[in-house]
Computed example of a mutant assay.
Amino acid sequence: MWHGEYRDPRLVEVYDAEHIWGWEDDFFMRVLADRTAPRVLDLGCGTGRLAIAVAEAGHEVTAVDPARASLDAARRRPGAARVRWIEGSFETLPPRSFDAALMTGHVSELLVTDEEWAGALRALRECLVTDGRLILDSRDPAAQPWERWTRESTERSIVLADGSAVQAWTESAKAGPGETYSVVHHYLFPEGLELTSTAVHRFRDEDQLRESLRAAGFRVDELYGGWSREPAGLSGDGELIVIAVAEPRMAS
């Protein structure tokens, strides 16, 4: 199934059980607190863990995701009424409506083609006020994350809310030019049912991120390689975490 963790209610439950609050969530909360940002967009919000926390911190939050099953799960969370939930993608963003935009959980990697990526960045620039911030994460291709996505190194047990356990593992294969890989997540349920979720990821390096953001009207303000704000390439986290600022629009 394509992006099954977001679209199949059974896999959404597994996703939520595995992806609990972590240091990356703490990082994004701290970055938001660095500057005043009354209105925040969470693009690719998934099941809403971060969006609700941001709203509970006092921000006006709009959370956007194309997957209905994920949004259904998000709306059932405690505190969900504080958030405006929208089923859609970057094409649906209202202009000049946000002071900060989040694109977390490596959502940027799922915008595979140059056209998709450029379109998303342009839409994000248009939805932000001048000097608004875009905060995103992507895995650093220099760390070759796909090398670790084998059954042997990723097999794990995920305990669901009812106490049952799902066995899971991840595998990857080259899928296209550059650092583009097909990633397949396997989930084996106690009754013997196996479901899979497939997605193609594009891993852009620091230069590609900087240039694409510049072309879309952003200035990269900070770029880190880890969740403790280590420089790129000097962290075991293997991340490229970008804080970019929306430049003034050119007069037409």
Rank of each mutant, 00 (worst) to 15 (best):
R133H: 07
F28K: 02
D237F: 08
L234E: 08
A142E: 03
D237A: 06
V40M: 00
R49K: 12
W227E: 02
A199H: 15
R151D: 03
L121S: 09
H106R: 01
A232Y: 10
G79H: 06
S70M: 13
E91P: 15
F218G: 08
R156H: 01
A120L: 07
P190L: 07
E206V: 09
G4S: 05
W117I: 05
R10Y: 02
L11P: 02
E211N: 06
R30M: 13
M1Q: 08
G233L: 11
P177K: 13
R77A: 09
V200N: 06
T36Y: 10
A215W: 07
M29K: 10
A53F: 08
R76D: 15
T62I: 11
T170Y: 11
T150E: 10
P38A: 11
A142R: 05
A216H: 06
E191N: 12
A80I: 00
S252N: 11
L32A: 14
L160V: 10
D205E: 14
D72V: 13
V129Q: 11
W227N: 04
L240C: 10
A74S: 05
C127Q: 10
P177N: 14
E18W: 14
V14H: 04
I158K: 00
R156E: 04
G238M: 06
P66E: 04
I135F: 03
R214F: 08
E116G: 07
I86M: 12
V183G: 03
A33W: 09
E191K: 03
A232T: 13
L160Q: 08
P190A: 10
L213D: 11
V166C: 00
R133A: 10
V129Y: 05
E152F: 07
R202T: 02
T150L: 09
F189P: 02
D99T: 08
P94Y: 13
V166F: 02
Y15R: 02
A100D: 07
A63Y: 02
A118N: 10
G226A: 09
D221V: 09
E171L: 08
W146M: 07
L209C: 13
A69N: 13
T196E: 15
E13K: 03
T198R: 14
G44H: 02
Q167S: 09
G58M: 07
S228G: 01
G88W: 00
E56R: 10
L41R: 05
A74R: 05
F90L: 00
S228T: 05
Y6E: 02
